[in-house]
């Protein structure tokens, strides 16, 4: 687990929380605890899926993202656990 965590930190990828409204990215990995991971999976968050940042609430509020036809709001702290890369995955 510790090793896994270290890899996560070193990895050069960006997280969902850093995207700007209008940006589109591809999910690379989800580094969340199991309960949150399952919830995100069920809402359509899977590696390889396209995700669009719709808007960010003011005062560091939650984010609105779109996956497929589903709009989801989540806090920035949760979005920071989702690793993405800009553009399509090869």
């Amino acid at each position: 687990m510790a090793a896994l965590l270290r890899i996560t930190i070193i990895m050069p990828g960006i997280t969902l929380s850093t995207l700007n409204p209008g940006d589109t990215a591809t999910i690379v990995a989800i580094h969340a605890e199991e309960a949150l991971h399952l919830r995100l999976l069920a809402l359509g968050f899977r590696s390889g899926k396209r995700i669009e940042m719709i808007r960010k609430a003011s005062f560091s509020g939650p984010l609105q993202v779109r996956i497929g036809t589903t709009d989801v709001m989540l806090r920035r702290s949760e979005a920071a656990k989702i690793e993405v890369c800009r553009g399509a995955v090869a």
């Binding site: 809402l43 989801v72 709001m73 949760e78």
Partner: peptide, 9 residues
């Protein structure tokens, strides 16, 4: 509890 909520149309 994470705040992850669907935003319905």
């Amino acid at each position: 509890e994470p705040f992850v909520l669907e935003l319905p149309p």
